[in-house]
């Protein structure tokens, strides 16, 4: 199947890209890896008259770590880079893992984490970690830059808080302190090339055997990836015994209302949220 017709524009600067995007608002798509752009265009999920390629814009493939700011992932930083980067593996192994479980080797060689979140699929594997770890999304528009907290970024299926003419330039994940650990668990049928039936990310902070802070985020259980504050509340201020973790897992399960589709039923998704919330928290604990 031939793709529908469009005009390809390789933007040479962010300013140009934003301007083009604004000018052709609603008719243009931004392209980084193209792996999540071409198949839906072929399937007529959406159309575009213009495709604006960011790959010629210098500086967007940044991957850096700052003790204060944390891990900065540029719009063109590929999932393959995240998966293999010793820096990411050291500073935030959950992010490296979440990159590795997406699609296939070939897709990850082109696809980007920023593209993954901008497509805003409910089951995307990148979002739960970002939510659990309180990431910030750096955005450039025609009138300048702004920062969107990840909690406010996803609005619906394939819908984000980006305004006309805005492009995500990077995502920054705060540093994990010594006493903080994070984990992401993807539940899918195949070990590769599969979409998550559900995904669970957890981040916990432990002091003297007591959990002092926690966040739990869920994928593929709502129109957007979501936080499960009720689950976190069950953990905070407590010693993380099996009973406590079970209660948190129960709370995570009760805080979501997924749909049934061809991949899984609602009730199975809910139960798997319980199982994998438990496992994600335990995987955090194992890292201490």
């Amino acid at each position: 199947m031939v793709l529908p017709q469009f005009e390809y524009i390789a933007a040479s600067s962010l300013e140009e890209a934003c301007k083009l995007l604004l000018e052709h608002d609603g008719k243009a798509k931004v392209m980084a890896g193209a792996t999540d752009l071409i198949p839906p265009m072929r399937d007529k999920v959406f159309t575009a008259e213009y495709v604006i390629d960011l790959k010629k814009i210098p500086g967007l493939d940044e991957l850096s770590y700052d003790e204060k700011e944390g891990l900065k992932i540029g719009a063109l930083t590929t999932l393959r880079t995240l998966e293999h980067s010793p820096l990411v593996k050291e500073k935030n192994p959950a992010v490296a893992y979440a990159a590795k479980v997406i699609a296939s080797t070939q897709i990850r060689a082109k696809g980007t984490l920023v593209g993954n979140i901008c497509n805003a699929s409910p089951s995307n594997d990148s979002a739960p970690n970002l939510l659990a770890q309180g990431a910030k999304v750096n955005v450039q528009g025609v009138d300048g830059t702004r920062v969107i907290p990840i909690e406010e970024f996803f609005l619906g299926v394939r819908r984000t808080a980006l305004k006309p003419g805005e492009i995500v330039t990077s995502v920054v994940i705060p540093p994990l302190a010594e006493d903080e650990k994070a984990a992401y668990m993807k539940f899918a049928v195949r070990k590769a090339m599969d979409l998550a039936i559900i995904g669970v990310a957890a981040k916990i902070k432990m002091k003297d055997g007591v959990c002092t802070d926690a966040r739990v985020a869920l994928g593929a259980v709502a129109v957007t990836p979501i936080l499960a504050p009720a689950a976190a509340a069950e953990l905070i201020g407590k010693k993380l015994t099996d009973e406590v973790i079970d209660k948190a897992a129960e709370a995570a399960m009760n805080s979501c209302s997924p749909i049934s589709d061809i991949r899984a039923s609602k009730e199975y998704r809910k139960e798997m949220v319980r199982v994998f919330t438990k496992r994600a928290v335990k995987q955090c604990l194992e890292q201490y």
Binding site: R190, K191, M193, R263
Partner: peptide, 12 residues
């Protein structure tokens, strides 16, 4: 499609 008609990969 092969996204939802999942036959085993080398890892499976």
């Amino acid at each position: 499609n092969f996204r939802d008609y999942r036959f085993p990969t080398a890892l499976d």
